[in-house]
Amino acid sequence: MTTITARRRRGNVLTLAMLAFLIYFLMPLFWLFVASTKTTGDLFSSFGLWFADDFSLLSNVRATLTYGDGVYVRWLLNTLLYAVTSAGGAAALAALGGYGFAKYRFRGDRALFGLVLGSIMVPTTALAIPTYLLFSKVGLVNTPWAIILPSLVSPFGLYLMRVYAQDAIPDSLLEAARIDGAGEFGIFFKVVLRLLMPGVVTVLLFTLVATWNNYFLPLIMLNNPSLYPVTVGLASWSSQSAAGGGATGDLLALVVTGSLLSVVPLVAAFLLLQKYWQSGLTTGGVKQ
């Protein structure tokens, strides 16, 4: 009896402490939402964590989407294009490769896998500058390929897919399919891929987030604003609004509202695909 009340009390204290932390993690997003409902004037004159008298969210959204001939919409579409093609390509390469490393023995397989695994530690930024120089030689700078091609390699994705394939694909299933006379690639596309799907979605999601959030690479690769992804676009608006005073003052409300709009799709994706990113992290984090 006493242990049950003790447990309950402990649960209450813990829940209260966690609520305090939750406020810290959600406060900035709440601020962002509140700020998106204000005119630039109200941003300065009203208290930041509560709404002003005028609720201007819709007019802010309209202004954000139409400013500069709708350049923000363009940025969103660019981000979508870069993120979806990179994530799709990276997941496909990782699925094929991870399955290959998990289920086939060939000369040098361990060394090759070790090389890929070691490259997880290579910082992306050590690569970005030489990649830029190489791309500028072959004329790929200032094209969508400059963002998509480097994002196709996901060593961590390959590692996840290998671990996943090892567990999810029983060898007996492959043997049975071979005895039935199926070819190796037929087996992969007809039998294996379906079983690998949860892992593929996990890698897809991680690469999607990485490309969606990518800033350094597009910052150095692109100087044509109509190719910017939303991250670089918002950063350029913010530096304009910081540099100019009155004339560009209204950009501030656009930066804030644009930030809010750019967050919504990813948060939605995370809420909808919870099952996948959680199972994927289990695979990656627990296995040695």
Binding site: F21, L26, P28, L29, L32, V209, N213, Y215, F270
Partner: peptide, 15 residues
């Protein structure tokens, strides 16, 4: 607590 991870670092820094 996980949601901030879905926020692009650019937006996090601006915010």
């Amino acid at each position: 607590i996980y949601i901030p991870y879905a926020v692009p670092s650019v937006v996090a820094a601006l915010m």
